[in-house]
Amino acid sequence: MLRYLVLRLAGVIPQLLLISLLAFVIMKSAPGDPVASLVGGREFMTQADYERVARNLGLNEPVVVQYGRWLGNVLQGEWGHSIQDGRKVSTVIAGALANTALLIGVAGVGIVLVSLIAGHLAGTRAQRPVDYIVSAAALVSFATPAFWLGLLLILLFAVVFDWLPSSGLVTLGSPDTLVTRLQHLILPVATIILAHAGPYVRLVRGSVRDVLASDYYRAAVARGLPRRILMWRYELPNALTPFITWCGVSLPLLVGGAFIVEWVFSWPGIGLLFLKAAIAKNYTMLMAAVLVTGAFVIIGNLIADLLVAWLNPKLRRQYGHR
């Protein structure tokens, strides 16, 4: 297990490097001259002053050195200031990260529950009406763009029926209670679950069917074990490993989808920040959002892989006591 842990952790390094490189490229490709912008234009500086300031900022050094220094600053939490409103990027990001984590966390739990239940129902009742309904719904879900589903849900529940709020975290001008917070959470979470659960459901259904067709499961049935034990001890644990692997692999997809949903529902998270920064060409913010998202996904992937290794005795033994 320790060997596996070390190997897997080593695999994280190139991923983090790539993400940081991407962020650095965004930073460097910001238009305009960083030296001239300090005093409001190139024409206000002499050539000697210009070169002195550029040297002080480290801009005359090779790109590799600049990258190293930038990375050091980022690791120490110095992410600069937003070029739009001058707020500290790290403060803005921290606030947004909490909101995004809440949204993706709740939606993630929802997807896991929905796909396990629906996948179990469809897998154990294959070629029957329940299976057809679940599988058809999963196919449609896979083909539905999240932003469009979000618009439809707003249309239905906020515009036509006026049951639920359509945007934001809280309603302006009304008391901020737990109930109103939950109300604001319902539509975005439902959108993410409905637009993303499809592949997960299909995967669980497939693995459940594989388990049901296997010899050890049939042997367990033949021994007359009660259904409850068959399900909890035989069917679900064996269907779980591919499911968790897929959860890790599909995390980038889910995060990307959640960002668009944040945009549609004006949910003040990383996604909204990122998209606003992209449209306003706010490069410092864009860089920070890319870094945070990348780190979030990489850590999520890591957790999923370690969980699988921990659950799967085969992997444990392979890297185990040798």
Binding site: G11, P14, Q15, L17, L18, I19, L22, V249, P252, L253, V255, G256, G257, F259, I260, F274, V290, T293, G294, V297, I298, N301
Partner: peptide
Amino acid sequence: LDAMLAIPVLL
């Protein structure tokens, strides 16, 4: 390739 897969395509 593995590193690329960790970045959301939409991003």
